[in-house]
Design a protein around this nucleic acid. Structure first.
Length: 102
DNA sequence: GCCATGGCTAGTA
DNA sequence: GCCATGGCTAGTA
C-alpha cells in the first residue's frame, strides 16, 4: 500500500465520533491538496475491509455524497447515532466539521 | 479507467 | 452543469 493511501486511512481513522471531515479536507491533511477524488476512491474500495468510520466523510457542501439510496440512508443512520444532525441529506459544517489544530 | 470531488461559470428568476 | 485533477485497487494473465 502506497504512503498516500496509508495517510488517508490514518486521517480518516482520526476523525472523532460525532464529527465529520470533507473529502478535500482529508486530502489536504494527507498532504495532497488536489486529491479529493482519491479519497473517495479509497473509501469506496477500502472502507469495508479496513473498518473505517467512512460515514464521517462528506462533501464540501456538507452533503452525503453517496448516490446509492440504501448506502446514503445507512450513512445518515450512522451519523445520527453519534448525535450529528442530518436534514435533507445535509450536515451543518459549522457545527460538526472536525478541524485539526496545529 | 475509475472515483462517495470541488470550484468556478453561465444562466435563470 | 462543466471539466481539470491525480493517485492507484482490483482483477486478469
Amino acid at each position: 500500500m502506497k504512503p498516500f493511501t496509508e495517510d488517508v486511512l490514518e486521517v480518516i481513522r482520526s476523525i472523532p465520533e460525532g464529527r465529520v471531515m470533507t473529502y478535500g479536507q482529508v486530502a489536504r491533511a494527507a498532504g495532497s491538496p488536489r486529491a479529493a477524488r482519491q479519497v473517495a476512491r479509497v473509501l469506496h474500495s477500502m472502507s469495508r475491509k479496513y473498518g473505517l468510520p467512512w460515514h464521517r466523510v462528506i462533501n464540501a457542501k456538507g452533503e452525503i455524497a453517496l448516490k446509492n439510496e440504501e448506502a446514503a440512508y445507512e450513512q445518515q443512520m450512522s451519523l445520527e447515532s453519534e448525535g450529528i444532525v442530518v436534514i435533507n441529506g445535509r450536515i451543518s459544517l459549522n457545527q460538526f466539521q472536525y478541524e485539526k489544530e496545529s
